[in-house]
Every structure is written in C-alpha cells, then in structure tokens.
Design a protein around this nucleic acid. Structure first.
Length: 283
DNA sequence: TGGCAGGGTCATA
DNA sequence: TATGACCCTGCC
C-alpha cells in the first residue's frame, strides 16, 4: 500500500533517520529510506512537504505512520518555543524538521544498551545481525527484512552466540535484560506510566542500562520529553554554550539542562545533538 | 600496522 | 565519588 501524507512541516526525513535515535533506517539509491518498524517494513520518501510511504502495513496504515513519526504534534510550535532560548536558535534553524520518533520500548532498550561506548556504524551492524539471527523474516518488495527479536528469543539465546552480533561484552547485558523483561521482573509498559524518577530507577535495574541509556529509552520510546540523555555530544554542546568550554561533570550538566529547559529538555537535546554532531563532522 | 576513539556501564576502592 | 577495564570496528 502506498499513501502520500501532505503538508508535513517541519519534517526532515534524513535528520530523523540519521539522527541517532533509531538505527534501522537505510538510505536507498532513490533518496528514500527503508526501515523496519515492528512487523512492518516502511519505505519513506520525502518530497518537500510531502511524505510518500510504501509499506506492508495491512490495517490502520495512517495511524501507524502518524504515530511512529509523531505527525500529529505541532513541531512548528515546539521549534518556536525552543527559539525563545537565544542560544538554541542556530541549532533549531539548522535542524528544523527534526522529530522525536515514537519507538517501541523493548527495541529501544536493547538498541541503546548496544549503543553504550560504541559508534553508530557498529551499533547499526550489531542490531542488523541481531535481527537476522533472532528476528522473523518479512518479505517486502521481493526482499527479505527481519523484525526485531522478541524478549523471549533473546532470553533463550546463548551468550556466546549473541557474540556473533559483534556486540562484544554487551552480549551478557542483552541476555540479562531480555531475561528480566521476558519473566516480567521488569515491565516496560508499566514503567511508561511511572513518575520520572521512579521510571528511571526501574530502567537502571536492567544490566547495561545506566543514566544515559535510561534517558534515551524514556525519551525515544515513552514520550518523556523532560528526559535529557547527556552523552558526549550533549556534554560538548552544553559545556560550549554555558560553561565556557570547561570540563563539567555529567551530573552538573544534567541538572543544569533539566532546570533550564524543563519539559522541553528532550526536544532541546535532539536539536543540540544533531547540530553539534553535524557541525563537528563537517568542520 | 598500531593506536585511538566511539551517543557508557560496571566493579572496585 | 572517582578510576579503569571492557569487545569491536573503522579511521588516521
């Protein structure tokens, strides 16, 4: 099925797909991106303010797409609000169209456990291998894609075999987290509704999940926009903007960012991360 | 060819 | 609270 979504603005598919919040989107020769979302393969092509979507979604096509890309949220208003912070204006201008995807909590948890002390290329490779080895095949457009593995399938996996996904020492974290979730020791659905601090504390019980990964899970899959993952890029950005470039502890930076941006912290993080990372890599 | 850094976490002191 | 180890990969 193919549908075109009109008048989507601000929306930047490339920034959304490459921005480091999701790791399963792949750029195609025709400029489109193909990704796997749940049991669905989605081919997305942006042409100006139109978004053309081709997918194997059978029911509720529009709902699935609108929810995943968060199309109902007024990002123009969000960008205007962020632009009230003078220091964010360049980042918001540069990254206009960035959106926080509404991803699945389990997949987000494992993806960001793999992300720790890793680089994006490796993260993508490991997740792809994980899906090929433990996910279910989905045929779309004559090609085979793979769904993200279930908690049960990873809980049953042998730690040595998980090493085949080239995730290194994180294999035991993946297995450990999968076991806790599969046996309902941790319930991601319930965590979604807990108060901020409690939710974070619960997530950190999972092996391989520290403060930063917990914030990623909260922001990218639980719509907790007050969560601000402080990674090396946000550290650089905040130090650069507010601490005269001086080395500052993660805790200080996190407290500062939460106070300064409040419920907008997660959005601010997205624009700062993408902006500083792009500026740095392009010089 | 070898050293280093990459969207942190964990164990130890 | 502060340090160092940790798998693997690509880049210089």
């Amino acid at each position: 099925m193919i549908t075109v979504f009109e008048n989507i603005y601000p929306f930047d598919l490339e920034a959304i797909a490459e921005g480091g919040q999701a790791f399963r989107w792949k750029l195609q020769n025709d400029g489109s991106y193909i990704g796997v979302v749940g049991q669905y393969v989605i081919k997305a092509l942006q042409q100006g303010d139109k978004l053309k979507i081709e997918s194997n979604i059978e029911q509720g096509f529009n709902n699935v797409i609108e929810e995943y890309f968060d199309l109902q949220r007024d990002y123009k208003a969000i960008e205007n609000q962020l632009s009230l912070y003078e220091e964010l204006v360049p980042a918001v201008k540069y990254c206009s169209g960035y959106r926080v995807l509404r991803q699945e909590p389990w997949e987000t948890t494992i993806s960001f456990i793999i992300s720790a002390n890793n680089n994006i290329r490796n993260i993508k490779n490991s997740i792809e291998l994980l899906c090929r080895l433990y996910g279910e095949p989905i045929v779309f457009g004559g090609k085979t894609f793979y769904s993200f593995p279930t908690p049960d399938s990873l809980a049953r996996a042998c730690e040595t075999d998980l090493g085949d996904t080239r995730c290194g020492y994180r294999a035991r974290y993946i297995k450990g987290a999968a076991e806790m979730i599969a046996c309902k020791d941790i319930d991601l659905v319930k965590i979604k509704d807990l108060p901020a601090l409690e939710a974070k504390r619960e997530l950190i019980r999972l092996p391989g999940v520290g403060p930063k990964v917990a914030d990623c899970i909260l922001l990218y899959s639980m719509q907790r926009f007050d969560a601000i993952p402080v990674d090396v890029w946000i550290k650089r950005a905040l130090e650069n903007l507010y601490f005269k470039g001086e080395n500052t502890s993660l805790k200080t930076l996190q407290t500062f960012a939460k106070e300064r941006f409040g419920p907008m912290a997660g959005f601010a993080q997205q624009y700062l991360f993408h902006y500083f990372r792009t500026i740095r890599s392009t010089g």
